[in-house]
């Protein structure tokens, strides 16, 4: 039996009819057409599917689409502040080569955004703790941490 779900994705109101057993991840990718959010494991281990729900990071694979009713969901597609403009994190990831195959990148960007929103200048330890649910099998993490620290400095400098 399908249910109607009304929710907000990246600031835009949406409506969709979904099966009760459909994950938010599958709904975002296949029903809404936002394929930026990735499916790595489908069981909460890798963090590739990380999105923010009412501002809090969750694994979209471990949430049902019907639970998004009335909530606001942010995905990597909503990270850009405007057309042709990148979020400082996206810019820093490109400059530092923090993305190789790129599969982990959307999840890490969303997690890093939340981390910097809460804590504008995190220590190395805080970054590691914050990203412990995001697995990258390519980069060895060093460039990811460098990019996050660099973006943190730029965001701090840009603050009035």
């Amino acid at each position: 039996m399908k249910r109607m779900v009304e929710f907000i994705v990246n600031g835009e109101a949406r409506e969709m009819a979904v099966d009760g057993c459909r994950s938010l991840l599958d709904a975002l990718r296949d029903d809404v057409g936002l394929t930026g959010t990735k499916k790595g494991c489908d069981v909460g281990d890798c963090g590739a599917c990380t999105v923010l729900v009412d501002g809090e990071p969750v694994n979209a694979c471990l949430m049902l689409a019907v639970e998004a009713e009335g909530r606001s969901v942010e995905t990597v597609e909503g990270l850009q502040p405007g057309v042709d403009r990148l979020h400082p994190l996206q810019d820093a990831f490109m400059r530092h080569g923090a993305s190789q195959c790129g599969f982990c990148t959307p999840g890490i960007l969303m997690m890093a955004k939340k981390l910097l929103d809460d804590n504008p200048s995190p220590t190395d330890e805080e970054i590691r703790f914050g990203l412990s649910g995001n697995i990258c099998r390519c980069t060895g993490y060093t460039k990811i941490f460098d990019a996050i620290k660099s973006a943190a400095r730029e965001m701090e400098a840009a603050r009035p």
Partner: peptide
């Protein structure tokens, strides 16, 4: 317990 994402749920 798990990750921040898991602990949020």
């Amino acid at each position: 317990l798990g990750s921040i994402q898991v602990r949020n749920r």
